[in-house]
Design a protein around this nucleic acid. Structure first.
Lengths: 201, 201
DNA sequence: GTCTATAAAGGGATAGAC
DNA sequence: GTCTATCCCTTTATAGAC
């Protein structure tokens, strides 16, 4: 049970845990109440409905997670340095938040229309800068002329996928938790290798 | 509504559709019954419970999908040819079944213990052959000595991720369905390039 | 095998006392 | 703000007629 802190804060933390683990459909208001150390009536007093509570939690998670992903692209490093830096810090972020990506992807796919409006203004800006910088280095002949979207998608895919597919991969490779953690750690050098080897002239 | 075919077959097809779209927790027996053109009582007559129906459907989907993935690795081609062939046919398979991966990943993560037993015997064998062949080509100096698991993970990640992250990617890149389909199609050459460029000596 | 009707439990939401 | 009690709809599951 979550202790200390204000009731509202305890509800939010409890709801995050339960929604992330079970998803919207699998989450129970009773379980959130128990974890927060209150009763169901209090949930509705603070958040009116399961829907409202969910959207609050989703927005909170999404707006913490996406900018953390994108801000790595705003510094004044070269494309190569940025990619190295980004992959390293992104995988580190995922090691601390391993269940966030699958939660977001599942909920977006479950309810695309409603949630699109919630993410629309949070995903646009930061990549633009990186895109322009890449175009510049392409013109300078430093990197190959590859579709910007493909590069970004490949980087994200290689970072995120092991986390969303963890149960399956552990089964396929018969690996225990410890060796899987090492496997992830190794990717902090493997993924940059793979990407840079591909895009550099 | 699904017509013709036996009642059991209609139930299975309807259940597949609904479970894949909504997930176990979001699926309703009523919706499955409606889609199959029968009533709820019939579902229980044929499958006793939602759980039993779900596991039947999950096993069916999983045992169709995973071997299709792995059989590409059993022919007598070189590692390079196999990788090219696999990526192409895997992405093509995903184009016809875009929602299967997220469904499997979500359900595995929701209920890992129960479902592990269901997948255990279906994921082991075929990769072994490919692993041995890779070791051989590594010894011959044809490809770099890279952890086999990392190569397989990267290939699967690059194929699968765009499908599980489609709503998010379309939002980030402001792309309509048509241009996203082209984006996917282009990956049939991009992903092999990326992988082979990385592992070839 | 297929249907209608209904039981039984679950779960979101509210009323009202304190 | 917080609690207990309860409403009421949804959903899984079963009984029983045909």
């Amino acid at each position: 049970m979550i202790e200390d802190k204000s009731t509202e804060q305890r509800i939010i933390e409890a709801a995050k845990q339960v929604f992330i683990e079970k998803g919207y459909d699998g989450a129970r208001m009773q379980e959130i109440a128990d974890l927060a150390g209150i009763n169901k009536a209090m949930l509705h007093y603070y958040f009116r409905s399961k829907d409202k509570l969910f959207f609050t939690i989703f927005d909170d998670i999404f707006s913490r997670f996406m900018p953390a992903v994108q801000k790595g692209f705003t510094s004044n490093m070269s494309v190569e340095e940025k990619i190295k830096f980004f992959i390293n810090s992104y995988i580190t972020l995922l090691q601390s938040n391993p269940y966030i990506p699958l939660f977001i992807l599942h909920e977006l796919s479950r309810n695309p229309e409603e949630l699109k409006t919630h993410i629309h203004d949070k995903v646009t800006s930061n990549f633009k800068i990186f895109q322009e910088q890449m175009q510049l280095e392409i013109n300078q002949g430093l990197i190959k002329p590859i579709d910007f979207r493909q590069i970004v998608t490949n980087i994200i895919a290689l970072c995120v996928f092991p986390f969303v597919a963890r149960p399956l991969l552990q089964e396929v490779f018969s690996s225990d938790n410890e060796s899987f953690d090492k496997f992830i750690e190794a990717r902090k050098t493997i993924v940059p290798d793979l990407i840079l080897n591909w895009i550099k002239m």
